[in-house]
Design a protein around this nucleic acid. Structure first.
Length: 878
RNA sequence: GGGCGCGUAGCUCAGUUGGUUAGAGCACUACCUUGACAUGGUAGGGGUCACAGGUUCGAAUCCUGUCGCGCCCACCA
């Protein structure tokens, strides 16, 4: 019994239990179960990713939800898997191959070989994160693990494409899109990050061409730009139609410098006459707004920047092959030399960056596949009407705003790693074929070379993982769709959440989930987002090694408020570990008393027993309510406060009276109370700290060879009499007053002291007398005398006044009466202030008449008590 | 430019629908290795709840404004 280690050693426990749970199939969902279904699909991490603190937070929350539901009698499916993460993965593999000198460019290998290499990479590095999730204790149904490029999942993706194509929602078109010159692919609007950067605004003079077609010396239009390099592709200068300054120039021409090309002056309402000079250079091929204007005015598309971000031949031989940013400087320099640079001013503006490659994106016109979002109205209504609930609710505004303003989704990517678009073009006729299986005679057809945006596969995750296609209506789907809760970060509300909702309605005819819990974002001590590139994210596995998975999980839950960002500090994980250790030792204390056995006998319960049992019921109610409202930190704090503050600090100390006493029945009953508390606390805590609770569940003999995972979720025991709570609290306040005397007189905690108590009433004295054994333990007292009303305190004896009465600590010759007097006077000042504050309230007629009578009465009662204490203290120094 | 969130102890944060003396952890001070636990115990110090108005008998809490910080959305070159 007593050979249990003094400190909790997580390492000895975690692997053992995880293996046991896996072996017994505890996480495997049974679609034929009669229990009600509860389901979460994991937000699939990148297949080649490693665990970050964000994952730890996110998956701990999901695990808590799942484990609690199992205890509440649900059939739980937590469906795990990974995402192929098109751009991210292909970029990483390509970069590695380049570093190894295997290739210089992806074309060196060609499509098939590169894809094969990526699969190799996936087999080697994929699944690391899955192993890490297991270390964390996640209770996912690994038998159902999916990957977005699995055969079945891929089929579902293609089916959905074909379906949408046939409905006319997917189309191909030439549009201006966001282009990443590093990854050399299109990006959706959501993959472009706007960054505020300090740039420059250059003002250039474009010479005005006379009506006769000659260049008038000295007459210019001044245009301002942040991107001089694009001027090589200018096709017009635009002014506002109502701008009086330029009205008469519309229709005339200017000479485009360097290119020496005459371009028209056009009028377009898009121009803001108040900005700069009111003249805008128009580069149809390289700016979205200009492209729009060019279409209205039938301007040609002059492409001067190529897909790789280098200038094209059209830019002129001086600039061809030059990088766009290099070219910018050259153009400025050239115009300066030509005397056409009017001025340069610093300018803060927003520039779109590629999310993955972190370089400025390039607007570019190209042929792409687009999707008109389906089910927009229904998806909006679902959240507005609460059919799908967001926690915290405020994210629904973000969702509504985005959904109300969306444009078609550019879903094609010029990559090779992903689901290839199921469209074929006839080599001779150019005819278009779209199907999952492809054309019957493939040799005459050529498949579209693009793949789909990763999110255009993961938006099907809630049902494609369960086999929506090809085996329609699988048992899993039938039982577990719609899923129940989704836990994810607000940063992917557009990328993923909104799109899943639309896909759910479109393909399943039903919502994909009922509740979405948005986590906060984990930041470092400086408030920066944790990221691999900054290197400011600790490795969760190191943290698990140091603090245990349970310590990490519980520590994180204590500081993870609903939906606001979390500043990570490693010290917080120590709190989690320490709590586990406290639990461990509290259990050890119980184990030292011998095997579990008897039930709580109500008639033998002391006031302290009632107190702790009543507080336990509060704890059970509050933890349940907090979890029902997705307030995980509140639940964790409640558990922490009850267990450490009420149970360990007070009850365990008090119970030593019974444990060390001679009355076997009382001792057994104290053990039974402990068992009640421990059994309930272990179950409440299990979702947060699965390993240690399982270990102790067995170690304390509650298990009877069964896992805690399916033990019943606690309900209030009804054992404790709540009416004694007030009495016990007051008793403890008296104890604190006594301990305070000890501390002030520097009586070592190990040294026994003597006390005298002058109770407020004989009745209270009698009750305290009955509880003498526990009082002696709490105060570490040799003897305590209850003198009733007769107690006379020798002047100068350390004394304090509490609600139940006064407490004295007689000391021989050690006391300085003057110092005691000073101490008491200080307390009197404090009391006087409080009484004064109450008097002010009570003197206010409005308060007395308008405040609820209970509040007024409370103030009066309090005043009386404070006055009594004041009088008692006064007596001591008179 | 629009929207959202935040400003409470030295630090990180709780604080439900307004109502005792505004809480916790860490850090700090003093005493303590007492037979569950030093990853611990006991006691203690520390706050003008960003600021200014307002509503109310009563405001950290509700309203308005100001300042500061953060995030999201937006085609002013």
């Amino acid at each position: 019994m007593t050979d249990i280690p003094k400190a909790y050693e997580a390492k000895l426990v975690e692997d053992k239990w995880y293996q046991d749970w896996l072996a017994k199939g505890h996480f495997t969902a049974n679609p034929k179960s009669a229990k009600p279904a509860y389901c979460i699909v994991i937000p699939p991490p990148n297949v080649t990713g490693v665990l970050t603190m964000g994952h730890v937070l996110n998956n701990t929350l999901q695990d808590i939800l799942c484990r609690r539901k199992r205890m509440q009698g649900f059939e739980v499916l937590w469906l795990p898997g990974t995402d192929h993460a098109g751009i991210a993965t292909q970029t990483v593999v390509e970069r590695t191959l380049r570093k190894q000198g295997v290739i210089r460019h992806r074309n060196d290998l060609g499509r098939e070989k590169l894809v094969a290499k990526i699969w190799e990479w996936k087999e080697k590095h994929g699944g690391i994160i899955i192993q890490q999730l297991k270390k964390l204790g996640c209770s996912c149904d690994w038998s159902r693990e999916r990957f977005t490029m699995d055969e079945g999942y891929s089929k579902a993706v293609l089916h959905c494409f074909v379906d949408l194509y046939k409905k006319g929602l997917i189309y191909r078109g030439k549009r201006m899109v966001n282009w990443c010159p590093v990854s050399q692919t299109t990006l959706s609007d959501e993959e472009v990050i706007m960054k505020e950067v300090q740039g420059e605004l250059w003002h250039f003079k474009y010479p005005l061409v006379s009506e006769q077609g000659t260049v008038d010396s000295g007459q210019f239009l001044v245009v301002a730009t942040t991107r001089p390099e694009t001027m090589l592709g200018d096709e017009a200068v635009a002014v506002h139609p109502n701008d009086e300054r330029y009205k008469k120039l519309v229709g005339r021409k200017v000479l485009l410098p360097i290119q020496n090309k005459q371009i028209p002056i056009i009028a377009d309402a898009l121009v803001d006459p108040k900005f700069g000079t009111g003249c805008v250079k128009v580069t149809p091929a390289h700016d979205p707004a200009d492209y729009e204007m060019a279409q209205r005015h039938n301007l040609p598309l002059t492409v001067v920047i190529g897909p790789d971000g280098r200038m094209t031949e059209v830019a002129g031989e001086d600039f061809e092959e030059m990088d766009r940013l290099e070219c910018r400087e050259s153009v400025v320099e050239k115009l300066r030399l030509d005397g056409l640079l009017l001025k340069t001013e610093p300018y803060m503006h927003n520039v779109g960056y590629s999310e993955r490659a972190d370089v400025p994106i390039e607007p570019r016109v190209s042929e792409q596949w687009f999707l008109k979002y389906p089910q927009v109205e229904k998806s909006l209504a679902a959240v507005e009407q609460g059919d799908i609930k967001f926690y915290p609710e405020r994210w629904s505004k973000t969702y509504t705003h985005w959904l109300g303003n969306i444009r078609d989704w550019a879903i094609s990517r010029q990559l090779w790693w992903g689901h290839r678009i199921p469209v074929w073009y006839h080599k001779q006729t150019g005819e278009v074929h779209c199907s999952v299986a492809g054309p019957a005679d493939p040799q005459n057809w050529e498949q579209d070379s693009d793949v789909l945006d990763t999110w255009a596969s993961s938006w099907l995750w809630p049902f494609a993982t369960m086999g929506r296609w090809p085996e329609e209506e699988s048992a899993t789907l039938k039982k577990f769709y719609p899923t129940t809760d989704l836990v994810t970060g607000p940063d992917i509300i557009f990328f993923w959440v909104a799109r899943m909702i639309m896909a759910g309605y479109e393909f399943m005819g039903r919502k994909p989930f009922s509740n979405v819990y948005f986590t906060g974002i984990i930041r470092d001590a400086l408030g920066r987002k944790m990221s691999k590139s900054l290197g400011n994210s600790p490795d969760p596995l190191d943290l698990i090694a140091k603090y245990g998975a349970d310590g990490l999980r519980f520590g994180l839950m204590l500081i993870a408020p609903q939906g606001s960002d979390i500043l990570f500090a490693e010290e917080r994980m120590e709190v989690g570990r320490n709590f586990c250790n406290k639990l461990w030792n509290a259990a050890r204390l119980r184990q030292m008393q011998g095997v579990a056995g008897s039930e709580v006998k109500k008639e033998l319960l002391s006031p302290d027993d009632h107190h702790v049992l009543a507080k336990l019921d509060d704890c059970i109610r509050n933890v349940s309510a907090s979890l029902d409202g997705y307030k995980f930190n509140e639940a964790a704090q409640t558990l922490y406060g009850f267990f450490w503050g009420e149970y360990c600090d007070w009850y365990l100390e008090v119970s030593k009276a019974a444990l060390q006493g001679t009355d076997a029945a009382l001792k057994a009953n104290a053990c039974a109370v402990m068992d009640t508390v421990l059994s309930n606390v272990l179950r409440l805590l299990h979702p947060f700290a699965p390993f240690i609770t399982e270990e102790l569940w067995h170690g304390l003999g509650f298990a009877q060879n069964k896992t805690i995972q399916f033990a019943e979720w606690p309900k209030p025991t009804g054992l404790g009499d709540a009416s004694v709570v007030e009495w016990v609290s007051k008793k403890y306040a008296l104890v604190v007053a006594g301990r305070n005397l000890r501390a002030e007189k520097k009586i070592a905690p190990g040294k026994k002291a003597n006390f005298k108590v002058q109770a407020k009433t004989p009745d209270i004295a009698a009750r305290l007398q009955q509880e003498l054994p526990t009082l002696r333990i709490l105060l570490n007292a040799e003897q305590i005398e209850f003198d009733g009303a007769d107690c006379q305190s020798p002047s100068g004896t350390p004394a304090a006044v509490a609600e139940l009465g006064s407490i004295f600590m007689p000391l021989e010759g050690l006391v300085d009466p003057a110092a005691e007097r000073k101490r008491i006077e200080a307390q009197l000042v404090k009391l006087a202030k409080e009484i004064e504050a109450i008097d002010r309230k009570l003197a206010n007629q409005d308060f007395v008449t308008k405040a609820p009578p209970a509040v007024v009465a409370q103030q009066r009662t309090k005043r009386e008590e404070l006055q009594r204490q004041q009088a008692e203290l006064q007596k001591l120094i008179d």
